[in-house]
Write a protein that binds this DNA or RNA. Sequence first.
DNA 1: CTGCTATATAATAAGTTTGTTATAGAAAGG
DNA 2: CCTTTCTATAACAAACTTATTATATAGCAG
Lengths: 113, 113
Amino acid sequence: MKNLNAAFSALADPTRRAILARLALGEATVMELADPFEMSQPAVSRHLKVLEGAGLIIRRAEGTKRPCRLAPDAIAEIDQWLSWLREAMSRNFDRLDNVLAELENPKGEKNVE
Amino acid sequence: MKNLNAAFSALADPTRRAILARLALGEATVMELADPFEMSQPAVSRHLKVLEGAGLIIRRAEGTKRPCRLAPDAIAEIDQWLSWLREAMSRNFDRLDNVLAELENPKGEKNVE
DNA sequence: CTGCTATATAATAAGTTTGTTATAGAAAGG
DNA sequence: CCTTTCTATAACAAACTTATTATATAGCAG
């Protein structure tokens, strides 16, 4: 799951999440993105490279401009992994509920796997 | 959204995801976690600290052991943010579909907004 | 061609992460 | 008590991240 690394890392940065939020409003060029964020254009270019590498955005060429947009199905793998995690978490909670209850009310043994 | 940073960052590391995967099987102590990963115990302790800081796991004390388990509802905020992103992505895709079609077939017959 | 605009890349500096080993401390067991 | 086990922390190095400025490239306009 190599791409999970890229995707989660990309989303871990608040500037990149803000860029995604901006792109949710529609396509934007690099300059349009760099303007509201008080950040140099090269810094934004880099963030876009990271987002593109993670498959979260797509870029096209239009003259000298490179408008970016959100990539559809970009988060499929993340969704899948998180679904699994969510399920494991609640499953584990149900199972350990008994163990924890027992710990607070120790009437017996100690077997936890 | 400070915790989104912590949560996404925590999930961005493959070792930490592997630890979560192990914890999905049930509680485990630090040593039990450190063993299968070829990594020193202090390194695992640190990863656990990160996971705990992100609210993904919970630890209790049991003698000298500190068993860890997955935290229920840990990913609620992430889920929420990703739901929004997913929706924005498909919404954007639908909208830009027309624009892109027009670009490839520039008859200028229809415009979106 | 000349210059302007939009973007990318290189060089670099600062800050963060992640691993290591060595060590400290707390609980358990002889 | 002494020893072992389990975990945390400190000190440090290597690797990665992210920002900056300066510069390169590519298309557009005159």
